[in-house]
Design a protein around this nucleic acid. Structure first.
Lengths: 240, 240
DNA sequence: ACCTGAACACCGTTCAAGT
DNA sequence: ACCTGAACACCGTTCAAGT
């Protein structure tokens, strides 16, 4: 019994039963010990949860570490893209972990290390520190490899039944129109009308593309011109 | 005592004590009743949490409903932007609610109504249903008015102490460089080196701008050309 | 119809006690 | 040094009982 073994067992338990199934008592059971024994290796349950973030983030770093150098033709975007998609593969294996990262990422050395490397890739690509800072805000959790969907994958992703669709159409005409059009236009994905991997990559590319555009603005003009104020960033005229 | 009064009290309690302070027993106390009385008006605690999403989302719709029509010169982006920023004002008042939305938005008629109107605005702006669908994925929770930060506002947002900065610099050179540069470049915001409102608007504009660009691609070319496959969206050549 | 008390099955955690 | 049993203060929830 050790802190490490406790954390490994906790990951396994969460993978199997979800985060709600992770209980100090059940965790101890899993290890063939009494609940109170855990407290010799761990301060509180909070400490276990912090440790889980650390373990999963380490897995992300390991997955990212296995990557071959990205095709230079793809620019900094290709390098960032493949790193983030590597992270995503890990989160698909541990779907209970994103909510944990959302509250605890800031405390994790492994996460800091991951982001440090990501910032390095962007720096190599010629982005200013200021633009990189903004990019971390735009990416949010996507920088790590997951995104919080409003309608979680698998639920709204399943095609609604006809009578359900009818009811939706009556109250939410625009949503209904959108759903009908999407299902119709992409029959190949109609078993679930949202392809999560596709949408993740689409979103990531849209953001990386926007950042690259700002990099070019910076490179061409006055430093800070691209990031000085909202609106300026997108070329809109400042409001009244 | 009624379902409505229970939910109102729950919002007030969460505003005051946070989501962890929201307990069936304490909620009953707040209402001058016994814990078990609540179960006459509510099925389970889950039902209360669903209700909270509904109440907050209704507040978002109310805030959005008060908006004047956006300046037509700003295009669909101005309309979407002001609607989303209205939502954000509500979430600033109820900071405990985003995690709830992340798991329960799909069940909420109020959220559906909000999104329906948002889709309508984009439709008016000439975006295809397909592009609108992607845009909801890109925006994620930002469509509603909040974004999940990896480093939560207020913590990493405070400038690190000198010795802390030293330690960070040793292990995370790129992060340290970024932090130093950002603090140096924007001394006016140095009391907290991230201006959350600015970053939210910056990110939102970057995304809306990317979507508008795709709309123009669609308008100019073959339908679906802008959204057919990852990479195509950003003009990159498809990978091998 | 609406509310309640007692009770049950769980939590995380403390603390004194074991080896 | 490491583990444990009993106990405490809390949970959500059921159920029979009150008015």
């Amino acid at each position: 019994l050790s802190r490490d073994r406790v954390l490994q067992a906790a990951v396994a338990l969460a993978d199997r039963d979800g985060i709600d199934g992770l209980t100090m008592r059940r965790l101890a059971d899993e290890l063939g010990a009494e609940a109170m024994s855990l407290y010799y290796h761990v301060n509180k349950k909070e400490d276990v949860l912090d440790g889980l973030v650390e373990v999963v983030a380490a897995e992300v770093n390991q997955e990212a570490g296995r990557l071959l150098p990205a095709d230079p033709a793809g620019g900094w975007q290709a390098a960032v893209r493949q790193r983030i998609l590597a992270g995503r593969r890990v989160f698909l294996r541990h779907p209970w972990s994103p909510p944990l990262f959302e509250t605890r990422a800031s405390a994790s050395p492994q996460v800091m290390g991951y982001l440090d490397a990501l910032v390095g890739l962007m720096r190599d690509g010629g982005l200013s520190h200021d633009l990189i800072h903004h990019s971390l805000h735009v990416l949010g959790s996507r920088a790590l490899g997951f995104s919080q969907e409003l309608f979680e994958p698998g639920e709204a992703a399943a095609p609604p039944s006809p009578e359900m669709a009818e009811a939706i159409a009556a109250h939410y005409p625009h949503l209904a129109g959108m759903m009908a059009a999407v299902v119709h236009d992409t029959p190949d994905t109609s078993l679930g009308w949202c392809d999560d991997q596709f949408e993740f990559e689409f979103s990531l590319d849209l953001i990386l593309d926007g950042l690259e555009r700002l990099r070019r603005v910076e490179a061409a003009g006055v430093p800070g011109a691209a990031t000085g104020e909202p609106g300026a960033a997108t070329g809109r005229a400042p409001g009244p």
